[in-house]
Write a protein that binds this DNA or RNA. Structure first.
Lengths: 338, 338
DNA sequence: CTGAAAGCGCTTACAG
DNA sequence: CTGAAAGCGCTTACAG
């Protein structure tokens, strides 16, 4: 294979230490020496073996990121932001997806590629607190998303209850009275939509609107299909919402599609609000109103947190960090003009 | 930090070789011995240091994947498929994005994380053949996408000319006569859309349709915005296409949005065909007709090729592999009913 | 400012 | 079936 430090040292007639000094740009190497070594490096096409460096230093410069699904543009966009944030700190990103399955999430959080990754950023769906407490190893772990845990890990997520209330308030402010929620989970034990659902309930109460649980549609997943299916199920059982707040943009988009297919007009007959602000929503034929979490901040904070624990501040108190969000009003909730 | 093989060996009162045998599930270890070692492993919470293993074996089990942009769902979906395909071969995926910039593509192809990744799958946009020929190192590299290179590397891509012709034929078969092409590149030196553009020209000729270069709209990028801008530019300069074939789905979606905003109806006034078959197109208010490359096959073939070169068949002839594709007709090209 | 040597934690011929 | 020892390619005290 390739040449080693030793080969270079031999050719240049110096010790490996000197070559190492040159490769790592240490000061205190005479220009002449540097020149001589560099020539040997070029001649041999030497490239440092990073694996050896990793073994020696106990660090790899690799952070793992595990999201439920890359097919959901929210996570794809987030992954891109994490890659950029990591690059700014000279880290690269190993990516995995869990399909939101507890088993896979446990696997990933419990020492995925031990010693190969320096830290992990995980966006869990089904993971339980007990899984986290049983986690071996001490690689930094940062949690993302709206699941809540009673475990000593950094957790970065916007205030989902407040954000959901903002969305519902936007709808009630438009005069909407029968506001449906799309995306509760059928199996209530693990309820990822927990906080957004709570926000919906709280804001309904605050607005003095009747709290109608028949306007809650349960789903198994969180994709476009699920949104369309939930919307159809709601309509099929006779519910007549004049507004829909969906768990995420994908479901909102699916719901809009279902509404239009049934001859209902958006926003005239039914206003729709999503969550995530994926680019697709800005360009759909009826541009989607949505809660927009600050993805750049989320990515940046997650990486910074991992890096901080890796360099100098390992004993940082685990923290709950809340990035900002905004409500972006678009066509799907345009005020009635007719 | 964690315990090492030596610690385990000491506690169990055996040699490191024996512990290694147990850890690696080698046969020929007596059950009693295995039991004893396992107890020591559990007691110490021992976890093998993969970095050391990598140094020793010269393999890391990590494949890098570099795509232009995760914000484009085609690449996000492809990345997901690559991760799954890699997992089936016990590889994990290091993900990077290049923004389609030559500089970044060169950086990535020339020894991104030398010795840390066993191989690389790259989907280039601006990369040149000369960059590839100057590539140092011998880690397997598999190219994806429609750029063509005269370099000794595996290249996996559908037949873009034929696929583009299929799309245009679909449109001409519908009676469309003024079929625009969206997504040529302004700077012609590097023309990623080269093949699809050629397919458009060839099929126009075959269908006996006039070859009108004013129906070609140039763009700088390949996103939704670019599609909308290109469509608007075309219309603004007086072109009156009755059909649009876009470089990809994102641009087609942007174009549809622009058409609708100008009061043109899709598909009645203008039929639209995209390329990629991203899930979003299936769910847009006007479901998008598109050329659907077999992403699963692309991902699988790319990973298999890298793995084959890594295990046993390093001297494989570089090959041009053409996965399949289909045209999926949806609402955006529904036959005129009125 | 440079050199000789130990060691990071594994795996693997080589013996026995 | 198991043990003692070398070595993967680096970095880093320790001398000088």
């Amino acid at each position: 294979m390739g040449a080693s430090l030793k080969d270079v040292a031999q050719l240049a007639g110096v010790s490996v230490k000197t070559v190492s000094n040159v490769v790592n740009n240490y000061p205190h190497v005479t220009p002449a020496m540097r020149e001589r070594v560099q020539r040997a490096i070029d001649q041999l096409g030497y490239r440092p073996n990073l694996t050896a460096r990793h073994l020696r230093k106990g660090r790899t410069g690799i952070i793992a990121l595990a999201v439920p699904e890359l097919g959901n543009p929210y996570f794809a966009e987030l992954a891109g932001a994490v890659i950029d944030a990591a690059a700014r700190h000279d880290y690269t990103v190993l990516l995995d997806h869990t399909a939101g399955l507890r088993e896979k999430e446990v696997l990933v959080s419990h020492g995925f590629r031990a010693h190969v990754i320096d830290g992990l950023i995980l966006s869990p769906i089904e993971l339980e607190t007990s899984d986290l407490l049983a986690r071996p190893g001490d690689a930094p772990l940062v949690l993302l998303g709206e699941r809540e845990y009673d475990a000593p890990y950094d957790h970065i997520a916007i205030d989902n209850v407040a954000a959901a209330r903002t969305a519902v308030r936007h709808l009630s402010g438009l005069g909407r009275q029968r506001i449906a929620f799309l995306g509760a989970r059928r199996e209530m034990a693990r309820q990822p939509a927990h906080l957004r659902l709570r926000g919906w309930r709280e804001e309904l109460a605050a607005a003095g609107l009747p709290h109608d649980e028949t306007l809650v549609a349960a789903t198994d997943g969180y994709g476009r299909w699920d949104g369309a299916a939930a919307m159809n199920a709601l309509l099929d059982r006779g519910a007549r919402p004049d507004a829909v707040f969906a768990y995420n943009d994908l479901m909102a988009l699916g719901a809009m599609r279902a509404l239009v297919e049934r001859g209902l007009r958006v926003p005239q007959d039914v206003s729709v609000v999503g969550f995530d602000d994926v680019e697709e929503g800005r360009f759909s034929t009826i541009a989607l109103t949505t809660v927009s979490p600050d993805k750049q901040s989320i990515a940046r904070l997650a990486v910074e947190r991992v890096v901080a624990r890796l360099t100098g501040a390992p004993q940082l108190e685990p923290e709950r960090i809340r990035p900002g969000y905004t409500l972006v009003a678009r066509e799907s909730t345009a005020p009635r003009t007719a």
